[in-house]
């Protein structure tokens, strides 16, 4: 279908991004845009919040913005 997603918002996908480089919440949201995942905005926020709580990434300030990251 035209609405089938080509990007999936999963813990594994988020982990891979955060291992690669520190990202802000906005950076992450850009990777999982609703038009790519087929999720609503609310679902995206809720699922991403649950994933980040589980991953419990390291945090650091870069240019006055909170960035999350993981080490392998």
């Amino acid at each position: 279908t035209p609405s089938s997603s080509d990007v999936q918002l999963t813990e594994d996908a988020v982990r891979r991004y955060l291992i690669r480089k520190p990202m802000t919440t906005k950076d992450l949201l850009k990777k999982f845009q609703t038009k790519r995942t087929g999720l609503s905005s609310e679902q995206t926020v809720n699922v991403l919040a649950q994933i980040l709580k589980r991953l419990n990434p390291e945090r650091k300030m870069v240019n006055d913005k909170m960035h999350f990251y993981l080490t392998e």
């Binding site: 949201l29 926020v45 809720n46 919040a49």
Partner: peptide, 20 residues
């Protein structure tokens, strides 16, 4: 739009602040 992205980022940060 960027404003929707801003709103989503703010909502996500609010969720995480409750946790952190």
């Amino acid at each position: 739009s960027s404003s929707e992205a801003d709103e989503m980022a703010a909502a996500l940060e609010a969720e995480l602040n409750d946790f952190m």
